[in-house]
Design a protein around this nucleic acid. Structure first.
Lengths: 202, 202
DNA sequence: GTCTATATCAAGATAGAC
DNA sequence: GTCTATCTTGATATAGAC
C-alpha cells in the first residue's frame, strides 16, 4: 500500500476524469495472493466455469485440492475473497481478449464487441459472476475493471458516452443470448449489427 | 387445457410469426391458482420486493401467513411454482405499466422505454428474478412474456429487429444502473437518450 | 499447513396424525 | 388445511491438536 502517491503526476489538458483515475489505480499496488491462494482460486475458477457458483463451495474446492475445507482459511480470509479474485481475473481476461482481437482489425468497434461477445459465451458463468453484483471497491477488482473497458474506449475513439451506450447494448444482448431469451426467429447476428452500427460515433 | 385449438383462426397476409404465436397463446387457458395459492404468491412477492430472493423461503412465507411451512405444499407443488407465478405477474405488470404510460404520449418509444426503466427500478428484485434465468416454458409464463413486449413492439411500429435492439440496450443499461456499475461522472439521462435516439427506426 | 471435531444455521421437502 | 416431527442435505466458518 506504500506505492499509492497522492500526486499521480502532471495532468495534461486533454485528460479526462477516467484517464486520471486509471493512472492513479495503475500505480496502486495490487494486493497479490500467495502461490497457494492462487492455486485455490484457480481451482474455484475451474469449478465455476464447469457448473456456475452453485458448484463452488469451500468443501468442493478443498476436495479437488485433496485437502479439507478448513485448510483453505489459512490462505484466504473467506469465500468472498475467492469470488473477488475470480472477478478480477475475469475482468482482466476479457479485457485482454478484446485488446488482442482488435490488433490490426479494420473495423475496431465491431471486432472489439464481437470479442466481448465471444468471451462472454465461452465463460458464461464467470461473466455472470462478474456482472451479478456491485463491484468490490478494493484495488484488486477496481484496477481490473479499468483493463476491461480499455479496448472499447479506444475503439470508440474518445466518445466516452458512446462507449457506455455500446457497453449497455452489448451487455444486454449478450445476457439475453445467454439466458435464451431471444425467440428462435430472431437473426441474432443481424441484431448485433443493427445495434452496433446504430451506436457508432458518427 | 381443452381450449387450445390447433387452428387459431385465419392468418392475414401481413401477420408475422410473432403475431401468430401470440394469438395461439392468448387462446390458451392460463392455469389459474386457487385463492389460497394466490395469497401465498402475494406474500412471497412482498418478501421478494423487500429483500430479494434470499428473503423468500418457504418458512418465512408461511410465517407471514401465520402457518407452518409444510402447509404451503397443500396449495402449491414446490417453491419453483411460486417463482414462476411471481415471474408471470412481473412480466404482466411491467407490460401494463408500459402500455399505460404510452397512452397519448407524443414520443411513444421514449415513453415506453422510460416506463420500462422506472418499473425496473421500483421493482428491482422482481426484475432481476424475471431476467435471471431462462423462462419456464409453461403457458402461465409464456403468455405473460408476450404481454411484456407488446408496448415496445408497437412503439417501434413493426420494426421487430429494432425492438429487440432497443430491448437489449434498455435491459443492459437498466442492469448497469441497478448494479451501480456506471461511474459517477456519467450523465445517465443523456446516456439513455443517446441509445434510444440512435436505435429509433429511421 | 493440515487435520478432526464442531458450531451454527438454514434450506426444501415428506409422512402421517388430527 | 393445518399441525408436529423429521429427513436430508448443505453451507460458511472456528477451535485447537498435531
Amino acid at each position: 500500500m506504500s506505492g499509492a502517491s497522492p500526486e499521480p503526476g502532471p495532468v495534461a489538458p486533454g485528460d479526462d476524469l477516467r484517464e486520471v483515475r486509471e493512472r492513479e489505480l495503475v500505480e496502486l499496488e495490487v494486493p497479490s495472493l500467495t502461490p497457494r491462494a492462487q492455486q485455490i482460486v484457480e481451482v474455484a475458477l475451474e469449478l465455476l466455469e464447469e457448473g456456475g457458483m452453485d458448484a463452488v463451495s469451500m468443501r468442493i474446492v478443498a476436495g479437488r485440492l485433496g485437502v479439507r475445507a478448513p485448510s483453505l482459511y489459512k490462505h484466504l480470509p473467506d469465500k468472498g475473497a475467492i469470488e473477488n479474485a475470480m472477478i478480477a481475473i475475469g475482468l482482466r481476461r476479457q479485457g485482454a481478449a478484446m485488446e488482442t482481437a482488435v490488433e490490426g482489425a479494420d473495423d475496431a468497434l465491431w471486432t472489439v464487441v464481437q470479442a466481448f461477445r465471444r468471451w462472454g459465451k465461452e465463460h458464461r458463468h464467470l461473466y455472470e459472476l462478474m456482472m451479478a453484483a456491485p463491484l468490490d471497491p478494493g484495488p484488486l477488482v477496481r484496477s481490473a475493471e479499468l483493463v476491461a473497458g480499455r479496448a472499447l474506449r479506444e475503439a470508440m475513439d474518445g466518445d466516452a458516452l458512446g462507449a457506455f451506450a455500446v457497453w449497455s447494448f452489448s451487455h444486454g444482448l449478450l445476457t439475453l443470448e445467454l439466458q435464451g431469451r431471444l425467440p428462435p426467429g430472431v437473426d441474432v447476428e443481424l441484431l448485433w449489427r443493427r445495434g452496433i452500427d446504430a451506436l457508432r460515433p458518427r
